[in-house]
Amino acid sequence: MELLEHLTDAELVALVVGGNKEAFAELVKRYQRQVYSLAYRLVNNQEDALDLSQDIFLKLYQNLGKYDPQRPFSPWLYRLACNVCYTSLRRRPQEALPLDKVIEFTPLVPLDGGPEDYYESREVQELVRRAIAELPENYRVPIVLRYLENLTYQQIADIMELPLSTIETRLYRGKALLQKRLSLVLERGARRELSRG
């Protein structure tokens, strides 16, 4: 079945709707990294990301008949994935107070020390990922789309089917919350950068 790898997305979809599940397996293989990464960066938890990815692919399977083969497949899949994630995140019990409801919240405190490439240290990256996962979902989804896939604001607006101005506002507010939450990390990183010259 290696030859399925050479088919375009639209051709694979045509085979799937004709009943070929191997073609669907090829689609999953082709996009599982993107889908799982999106889910993982949104929930910051392997188990939840696995469940969410599975939900996305099952939703995809059910909706393949609605796909317009004259349009690129990837943005369409992303739109569907975002809808599934959004619905799932909204249903999910809130483990912590949403950041936008908290007036005075404590910045995440990084440990002292650390390697030369401070921002790249595992500890700092985990703090950032935690901060992202604790954002309200309407800020979290556009931020992850922006930085995971390097999408433009307009592309995010198209995927989320929202006005561009809404995406601008959400990214601004989301990043402002993150900046506050990560203020100690940023200060420490800036000091190290200066001390290194």
């Binding site: 999953v28 293989k29 799982y36 960066r41 921002y119 950032v128 992202i132 995971l148």
Partner: peptide
Amino acid sequence: LLALACTHVEPPAELL
């Protein structure tokens, strides 16, 4: 920070 934290991850083999 965001660019460093939001990277792709390999899915677990069991997903497929």
